[in-house]
Design a protein around this nucleic acid. Structure first.
Length: 251
DNA sequence: TTCCAGGTGCATA
DNA sequence: TATGCACATGGA
């Protein structure tokens, strides 16, 4: 699902084939999501010429940051804390099925559901949200939904702010800490200096840049800024996926 | 059965 | 400011 649309993407030689349920004339919603207009060369050119990031880039050819919907991105990452990615997907599927809108699928038989709007989730009782297996995250999701619905969090305004200003706004939400805020800044707004530090990135930076040393999260964040610079967010994605492919979890 | 997951909030020192 | 623990749930 991509906003209100169902789409199936299939890789082809030097292309991506997009199949939709409804006729499409303007594909900008998809090219924007996939960031197909972004030229990666200038981004990669700004990376430091060190072995770890070079290996990660080589291993993840074609990787791009997606441009996700701010509400869906924020809600999804609120649900992500101390959950495995598969479980997060299960929770989101339940949420969509129960509170999203049914959407046509190309085969005309399968069902798909859009991501629920914030004003809808803001009205769902906490116990019903918990029934979607999100546990203690339920009040956080509900509060975020209410904040977006009533304009306390204004995504349009956030998009015009400096990274640190926008981060400060997001951090006002309960259940949103530095990591989730940085994910939203990077994946929904394209603030490329945002560098989400999660368990995988801690492991990646510790193993690749500080072997046999004890480093704090704060030190790693500082390192990410000074070492990777203005496109640190892209470096984060390469290191994250590289670690997911070849690394094992926490030390 | 035990550990731990794309963290955060809160108490304590 | 830094550290430790609780928080739900379920897969490995």
């Amino acid at each position: 699902m991509l906003g209100p649309r169902w789409v199936r993407l299939t890789p082809a030689e030097n292309a991506i084939i997009g199949e939709t349920a409804e006729p499409v004339t303007d594909w900008s919603w998809l090219t924007d999501y996939l960031q197909l207009n972004v030229d990666l060369d200038p981004v990669l050119a700004k990376f430091p010429a060190d072995e770890p990031i070079s290996r990660a880039v080589k291993a993840c050819r074609g990787l791009r940051l997606l441009r996700q919907d701010p509400w869906e991105c924020l809600a999804s990452f609120i649900l992500s804390s101390t959950k495995q990615i598969v479980q997060i997907q299960q929770i989101i599927a339940l949420l969509c099925e129960r509170y999203g809108k049914p959407v046509r699928v190309a085969d005309g038989q399968s069902r798909a559901y859009s991501f629920p709007f914030p004003d809808v989730l803001a009205e769902v009782p906490e116990s019903d949200l918990r029934a979607c297996r999100m546990g203690f995250r339920a009040p956080y999701l509900r509060a975020a939904a209410a904040a977006v619905a009533d304009g306390t969090i204004d995504f349009r305004a956030l998009a015009t702010m400096r990274t640190d200003q926008a981060r400060t706004e997001l951090l006002k939400l309960p259940g949103v800490g530095r990591k989730i805020a940085d994910c939203v800044l990077l994946f929904a707004f394209g603030f490329q200096d945002a560098f989400p530090v999660d368990v995988w990135i801690k492991k990646a930076l510790s193993d690749l840049y500080f072997p046999n040393q004890r480093v704090t999260e704060k030190q790693l964040r500082q390192f990410s800024t000074t070492h990777f610079g203005s496109h640190a967010g892209y470096a984060q994605q390469y290191l994250f996926h590289y670690m997911r492919m070849f690394g094992r979890r926490r030390r």
